[in-house]
Amino acid sequence: MKAAFVGKGGSGKTTLAALFCRFLGVQDAPRVLAFDADINQHLAVALGADPDEAALLPALGDHLEEIKEYLRGSNSRIESAAAMLKTTPPGPGSRILRVDGPNPLYERLVRPFGGVRLAATGPFAADDLGVACYHSKVGAVELMLNHLADGPGEYAVVDMTAGADSFASGLFTRFDLTFVVCEPTVRSVGVYSQYVGYARDHDVRVAVVGNKVDDADDVAFLRDEVGDDLLCWIGRSGFVKATERGRFLPIDELEPSNAQALATMRAALDRCGKDWSRYAQQAAEFHTRNALAWGNARAGADLTAQIDPGFTLAPATAAAR
């Protein structure tokens, strides 16, 4: 399954993404692949990496052409890696990724932290200022998820950019379930309202996870504001406070109520039905949008021809299973 974490800046989405990944990593030995797609690259540290060690993590955004060339494979609809957009969907001959590999991209770009395998888009560099937007880097994650055939017991978890900035690309459609991390504050639920207003127009499943919840009044506030979207909540946590101060405890020492919230999140994710046809249709929609808006003009060709209308990732998933 594929899951995203979004929310207002400072809501704790990176902390919860890391907790969820660590929780999955010890539950029935599932396979977990995490992506840091936030402009503030903190997921590696939240997973237990030393800041200096985290700084050495290869940046997917710096290897976009290599990623394109590998994923293109022998797909006859794609003339060259240079002709690929971040939205280019897979087709016959494309190389399909699995959550646990192995493949040359993972060997070069993925590193283990805290028992979780992580890839990161990389920070916004000084050379990018005034030249490129951050989504030119995040496009590497979108491209990899387009080509990722995740099967039972496999999880891809993405820490997204804060707020509604996630909608600057089609990446927000690449998930089976999007967890909106929401503090019991007006500003935080305002971001939730903005997010779901866009997401539901594209059939994106959303579940709210309350965070920094102190008491029943906080829960009541969240329930009044988000209604049935409230899935569960994380209370104030000594475990989390220790983590944020650089002391990483075993995940089984997390408070029982907070561990139960993580179990509820996993159960909700596992209940999401896999619809590979819908997944392919969404990819085709956003590829067409990007091709018509700017891709065709840049390439001097009709890049919508890269779409194979009959191709989905379902056979690749079944074959691997």
Results as ranks from 00 to 15, higher is better:
L118H: 02
G122N: 06
D50S: 13
G115Q: 06
I96W: 06
V191I: 15
I67V: 14
N258W: 11
A83E: 02
L47A: 02
K68Y: 08
V206P: 00
D38H: 07
Q27A: 14
A316G: 08
D203A: 15
V158S: 05
L118V: 07
A216Q: 13
F113S: 01
R223E: 13
R245V: 00
R271E: 12
E285L: 14
G246C: 02
V226L: 06
G101I: 06
V141K: 03
N290V: 15
D275T: 10
P112L: 08
L64Q: 09
L19I: 13
P256Q: 08
D128R: 00
F221M: 04
G12F: 08
P123T: 15
Y195K: 04
T121G: 09
D218M: 06
A207H: 03
D28W: 01
N211G: 05
F179Y: 10
G130T: 11
M84A: 09
T264F: 00
V131R: 15
V157Y: 00
P315V: 08
A164F: 10
F20C: 00
R289H: 12
L177G: 07
L118W: 01
S193N: 14
G153M: 04
G7V: 11
L60D: 05
L171T: 11
S169P: 06
V158T: 14
N258H: 11
M160Y: 03
D224H: 12
F286R: 05
L269P: 09
L269I: 01
A29M: 12
E255P: 09
R321S: 12
P58Y: 04
H42I: 03
H202Y: 15
F221A: 02
R72M: 05
T264A: 12
A126K: 15
F286H: 10
Y106A: 14
F248E: 06
I251E: 05
R95E: 08
L33Y: 00
T87H: 12
A54T: 01
A319F: 10
